[in-house]
Design a protein around this nucleic acid. Sequence first.
DNA 1: GTGAAAGCGCTAACAC
DNA 2: GTGTTAGCGCTTTCAC
Lengths: 366, 366
Amino acid sequence: MRKRTISIATVAAEAGVGVGTVSRVLNGSDQVSEATLKRVLGTIERLDYRPLRSASSLSKGRTDAVGILVSVITRPSVMARLVGVIDVLSDAGLDAVVFNVENRAQLERHLSSIIDQRRVDGIIAISLRIPKERITRIRKLAIPLVLVDNSLPNLPCVYIDDVAGGKMATEHLLSLGHRRIGFIGDNARSDLGMSASENRYAGYLMALEAAGIGPDFDLVARGPHSSEAAAVLASALFELGKRRPTAIFASSDTLAVGVIKEAQQHRLKIPDDLAVIGYDNLEVSSILDISTVNQPLLESGTKGASMMVSLLNGEIAKPHREELVLDVVPRGSSLGIQRNSPTKLYGVVEGPQGLQILQGGEELVS
Amino acid sequence: MRKRTISIATVAAEAGVGVGTVSRVLNGSDQVSEATLKRVLGTIERLDYRPLRSASSLSKGRTDAVGILVSVITRPSVMARLVGVIDVLSDAGLDAVVFNVENRAQLERHLSSIIDQRRVDGIIAISLRIPKERITRIRKLAIPLVLVDNSLPNLPCVYIDDVAGGKMATEHLLSLGHRRIGFIGDNARSDLGMSASENRYAGYLMALEAAGIGPDFDLVARGPHSSEAAAVLASALFELGKRRPTAIFASSDTLAVGVIKEAQQHRLKIPDDLAVIGYDNLEVSSILDISTVNQPLLESGTKGASMMVSLLNGEIAKPHREELVLDVVPRGSSLGIQRNSPTKLYGVVEGPQGLQILQGGEELVS
DNA sequence: GTGAAAGCGCTAACAC
DNA sequence: GTGTTAGCGCTTTCAC
């Protein structure tokens, strides 16, 4: 409570050394003798001194922070990627500054603030299409940019082939003998350029064509990204009577949930009357036994963030492009096979007040 | 490409004014004549100049960023609060620096880095208990701290009364005539101090006692926060035969999903053989028609962030404590009433390629 | 109203 | 090895 503010100068004075030496100690330079190191460290400890971030940022010319642009953060798939990104950045000692982008205007606003003010050392864009002009500008300013769940030439990115995924999902249904396969997906959005659903749709069409089945647009429906909307759309498809689909590919598990719920309302048995496959392998698909296309969501985030870390450390020279693998996870909603009970994974024990499943890595209150 | 870096001095020189004037313009001071304002603004525009964040931070002594400490970010309820926080901060022009906290060690690490380096102007802790020593330190440094989904004396916080919520949920089941009511919740964790589930359990016990029903620990089970774990625990309760519960209060919707899924495996009809109520009113509860206790998740985030904004603007003097209201949302899993079809909410139209539900606020690709 | 100059707290290049 | 010093780019008195 004595000093107004305690800076590097205070420490230097107190320890009887120059500020340079203190700075060296702070930054782990080996140009410091054992003796002074100890002394300075001691003073720092005693004074409880911590260097001010903004000062060193200004001096060093970097912020040690990474901006994360996220499209519609509430979507579980986006969330999962974000978590992966944050974890890796955090481990690398980088701050994760998160920007939620719900529309084009926000995207522009955030981008300009991030880029122009140099708030961050690098930018990770998740499931987002960045306007060309911005890309150009970012390039010119030499700000590292990594794309997660998107792809652009000459830019480091973690790419997932949604077309292939859509194809795989549809082929799965085809392999089960289905011919009248419906598609339920997201509205195509021009503002944020999230094209995942449309790409999966393209894969769907390709698979059908390869199987010699022409597209039937009566079996195709799009809407907002919610279970409720999917339920409504599914309902419309079910009303087609004889012409109704025997299987539906929903471009995300969230939509698949709505489809299945609605099927139950219509007394359609899953998968006998209607087979369903979703996409993303969200937790909900596992618990509701919904077939799906697994994409490594968390991994896409960690991979992207790792790229960023490498870029910032100057370890990577040329833009790297990583493509993650997809795989169909067949479950009850298409196969009708009873899924394995998860019981085996857990050991239930008698706890102090009721039953308990102990979990690893956490201390339990006794 | 001429100048190395373009700073406030460049602008000043180019505009033929002093740096002070440019700074005034930048910060919207009214101490600038109309003429110079115009000229400086013009030069800024022409030079495409933007002030550097870290420089003004150092000078101003603030970062215009807020640190958000989040416990186990993957939980949907936590996510929802986070989204609320980010949105408000973003609108206020504050950067949201997110720290994911999975264990006590991480909490300490992040806290010390945030606090000591003054990376941020304020801290918002979501669903997290901050150790006393840290609170003391934060207080001493006069760093604004807001608690969301937690409460501490003399600290601004957005509080949700989980005990009351647990009581409400249990009373709902009691009111339906149930006497053998089970509880499935999270393991109590000492490291992060997330006590929501335990508080709801306390409410559950209170409601039972008020109804003259003694606790039966055979009907109580705890485990990790996942549907799978809940399913396993539910299974154990179902095996009690005659003594099995006729209703279950799951301390979160995520757990309720597991309970219901497992009930179906056991051929228990919902809600006739087993009534279920969850907590949080997550999207999944709506689509699966699960009764729940609604808590304004997003609002807790926005409220908390608003408090922070006020604090940083010096608008609030004493710590404010906001308590959000809870309400039971009775649905099919306890009442057995067919929920309203969401169909009415949406208008399905004939799109260019299949059916479509148009959504407001988004441009659709034609 | 406006310019000049003194910091803000740290880093890094340069001397010794 | 270590001290000294000149910035990093901006804000903010304080004169004029």
